[in-house]
Design a protein around this nucleic acid. Structure first.
Lengths: 192, 192
DNA sequence: AGAGTAACCAAGCAAGCGCTAGTGTAAACG
DNA sequence: CGTTTACACTAGCGCTTGCTTGGTTACTCT
């Protein structure tokens, strides 16, 4: 097995695995299917990953890392008004969700297949990401832009956004940014 | 196999299956695990269900039927004001979601494991339920209670509500009704 | 040229999988 | 009373699963 966690080959294989995990689900994706998609034999797979679990962990880590980076960058680059930050955060969320769709769908719906060790490690990443959200929501609440319990509001907003992967069609008329703006408008008392 | 679709024994077995499906996921739940939980041997299971798929379909059908019945009844019994109907619908949604939690978690997260035939059949049930939501949202929009696109709003609201199964703790201080009221308050311009 | 290493393959093992076949038994029915 | 029906059992078939083993190839570095 490769020691370097970020070998380019391994990254490519991880990307392919994410796609299959979305199509079939983690449990139904066999190592033979993974290998075929990657153009190698099933035995060779275990040169890159210790076991099937590690592939899942790699997929989820990749996606969550990206989400963190994108959200942080977006927040840094934007103005300080709470409304703008809220909008920017929602946009960043949907941007990662749909450019890195496969990895995120796996992270959202196959998280429970992780063994406890991997789950614990990745929880920290996810918590860091959610902390960004809570901070943005807090500012918006304090500015009187929205109302409600900080904890509940962030859960509801994240839920609404995450659920989009179940119905949103990227080839439809609406862009992810439209979606984000509509959601922000929905929870703000006085639109436009 | 039993011909009657609603034999009491079968209902009980379906309930147990739902619990295991939630705990382990559909694919990881073996017929031997199901049988043990039911207090019978794995072979006997196929007297009640044609195959493993049929157990999944039974679980999902049961949950969705209940949701429909509860929502319809709640809407019939409540006043005609759009605000009340919106609140009642949200409450009914969370009520089913948490009294029938196992079945609904399976319906939400294992839907894709259904074979095409079962999926088509159950889609009608789900569509009927979502139609109730769209109607309620439409009334609220028309009355100026909330704003936005009817399609998007209902998707966002349903997403926020469904996602609660991932974080809500029924033993915590908040009741499901509290949650429903908070969500409705969040999307309404002028609270209390 | 020789050593080291990353990437791969062929072959297959042990365990577990969904499901079937054939049988037994006790209650319900005509 | 004999027959049917519902429910359960034992035993195991045929197949797939994740993973291992032992070895080969191709490339890089000194």
């Amino acid at each position: 097995m490769n020691v370097m966690n970020a070998s380019p080959r391994r990254k490519e294989l991880t990307r392919l695995a994410a796609q299959l995990f979305v199509q079939e689900g983690f449990d139904r994706t066999t190592v033979r299917m993974l290998a075929q998609e990657m153009g190698i034999k099933s035995g060779s797979l275990f040169h890159h990953f210790k076991d099937k679990q590690e592939i899942l962990a790699a997929v989820i880590e990749e996606g969550t890392q990206n989400a963190l980076v994108i959200a942080r960058k977006a927040l840094e680059e934007c103005a300080a008004e709470p409304e703008m930050r809220l909008r920017v955060m929602a946009r960043a969320h949907l941007e990662t969700l749909f450019t890195d769709r496969n990895a995120h769908v796996v992270a959202l719906f196959e998280w429970r297949r992780l063994d406890p060790a991997a789950s614990a490690h990745l929880s920290h990443l996810r918590d860091a990401y959610e902390a960004l959200w809570v901070a943005v929501i807090d500012d918006a609440l304090e500015a009187g832009l929205i109302h409600g319990d900080r904890f509940l509001v962030s859960r509801f907003v994240l839920g609404a956004l995450n659920w989009t992967v179940r119905w949103y069609d990227p080839n439809g008329p609406r862009s992810p940014d439209d979606l984000a703006d509509e959601l922000v408008a929905m929870i703000m008392p006085t639109p436009v």
